[in-house]
Design a protein around this nucleic acid. Structure first.
Length: 435
DNA sequence: TCTGGGGTCCTAGGACCC
DNA sequence: TCTGGGGTCCTAGGACCC
């Protein structure tokens, strides 16, 4: 992109809630929250709920009464639905500016190369209107010189009704006003810890950070902090990353529906998680050579104490064969497991991923390995076509006390009718990261 | 009673080598 | 009694993001 081109950040408003509302119009009249797996935490809130003071990731039980008093719709998450919406929105953006001008940053936001600074507000409004019309999802658009400033602009576009969801601050005299109104903790890249450090040094707003000496900031934050200062000054440090990068790790971790102590049951859960992670890995054309497994007891109820342990295995060869990875995972599990404890959470992470096509040849059993690898891919395809787990390893049980408790799942039959109408067929996205 | 999940990057410090 | 120094690699942990 040209150095002078503007950057736009397109960010979906209350994304998961907006998806649920897009397929169920009745929800538009009520406050809505979407819950995490297990229905434990609130992971998406409608504006009304935000106004009640409910925080992101707040446990449901702490605010259940408040929500019910306001007739709030409480919904279990449905990630397949959110991904199909994300996919369609991405396609619209690509259609508008071209694939090489879109950086998909997360499931619900993307940076765009907005081109030369000409009619930016009009451009933003067009994008916003089109996405709303075609998907029912409201988005906000912030446009400026750098990504960090675009975050600020987007934040204000969301908060201020006057902007109608689009704020163009490209070389604008209002940028400093915007920065003065932005608390230091709301700056992109400044988390809780850094915010404390900066406040101790008298830096309380984005504007004060803009005026700071980047080298000093690097001293008590890190190189990121220094970059943030420059970005706030309109100097591009973070380029648009428009080519898709391979994942460096893939994880599948869950809190169990209830605390478990049975070795068998927990092992089953870990194998189940492994299978899911492997599917995702193969779908992305990757192979792994190191895995780690972790087990944790309930950190909120240490009984008799909080136990958390992670064990890793590293192979000399990369692999994408489920049965082989099972063996790695099993050895990690045996190391991490201590009898007599009640476990509440477990997970597996695949590290050191590499494109499956480029992994090194094995000295002894290359032919066998390739056969197994092909078999796994065929199974993936069958499962994709005929339904998940139509074919699965005999070792795998998808039932157990570890399963999530989702009691607020929205009615799938209703969804399907509405999804049909919106053209949300059986899309399976390769483009949206963080599957 | 009830408390999410999936990622990335940076840094300090230890191990090791010559 | 005197007791090097520089470089690289790896890892765990911290911080941050959505």
């Amino acid at each position: 992109m040209s150095e002078n081109n503007a950057i736009a950040l397109v960010d979906c408003n209350n994304f998961f809630v907006s998806c649920e509302r897009a397929v169920n119009a009745k929800l538009k009249e009520r406050p809505v929250v979407v819950l995490s797996n297990n229905d434990g935490c609130i992971i998406s809130r409608s504006d009304e709920v935000k106004q009640m003071g409910v925080q992101m990731a707040q446990p449901l039980f702490q605010v259940r009464e408040l929500l019910e008093a306001h007739n709030t719709a409480i919904i279990s998450c449905n990630h397949a639905l959110y991904h199909s919406f994300a996919d369609r929105i991405l396609n619209i953006l690509i259609n508008e500016v071209g694939e090489s001008s879109v950086e998909l940053y997360s499931i619900d936001e993307a940076f765009l190369d907005a081109g030369p600074p000409d009619k930016l507000k009009l451009f933003g409004t067009h994008i916003r209107d089109r996405i709303l019309k075609e998907t029912n999802i409201p988005v906000s658009v912030g446009i400026t010189e750098t990504k960090t400033l675009a975050k600020v602009a987007n934040h204000l576009a969301k908060k201020s009704a006057k902007t109608k969801g689009v704020l163009d601050l490209y070389h604008s005299p209002y940028t400093d006003v915007a920065l003065k109104r932005t608390e230091i903790g709301d700056v992109w890249g400044v988390g809780r810890r850094s915010a404390v450090k900066l406040k101790e040094r008298g830096i309380n707003t984005a504007f004060e950070l803009k005026l700071a000496d980047p080298e000093k900031i690097r001293g008590y934050l890190n190189v990121f902090g220094a970059r943030t200062v420059l970005e706030l000054n309109g100097i591009k440090c973070l380029p648009l990353e428009t080519t898709e990068r391979d994942n460096k790790s893939i994880a599948h971790t869950r809190t169990f529906g209830k605390a478990l102590s049975s070795r068998e049951e927990i092992r089953n859960a870990v194998f189940f998680f492994t299978t899911r992670a492997m599917e995702k890995m193969r779908w992305n054309g990757l192979a792994t050579r190191s895995v780690s497994v972790f087990l944790q007891t309930d950190r909120h109820r240490p009984d008799p104490y909080y136990y958390s342990n992670a064990c890793s295995y590293r192979s000399i060869y990369h692999s994408d064969v489920t049965s082989e990875i099972y063996r790695w995972v099993a050895s990690c599990f045996e190391q991490a497991y201590r009898p007599g404890l009640k476990y509440r959470r477990a997970g597996i992470v695949l590290h050191e991923l590499a494109p499956a096509k480029t992994i090194s040849i094995r000295l002894y059993d290359q032919a066998d390995f390739e056969r197994w690898s092909r078999l796994n891919r065929s199974i993936d395809e069958l499962n994709l076509r005929y339904g998940r787990d139509v074919i699965r390893p005999a070792i795998l049980h998808d039932k157990g006390g570890w399963q999530s408790q989702s009691t607020h799942r929205s009615n799938d039959a209703n969804h399907n009718v509405e999804r049909e109408r919106l053209g949300l067929g059986k899309t399976f996205s390769r483009s949206v990261r963080f599957l």
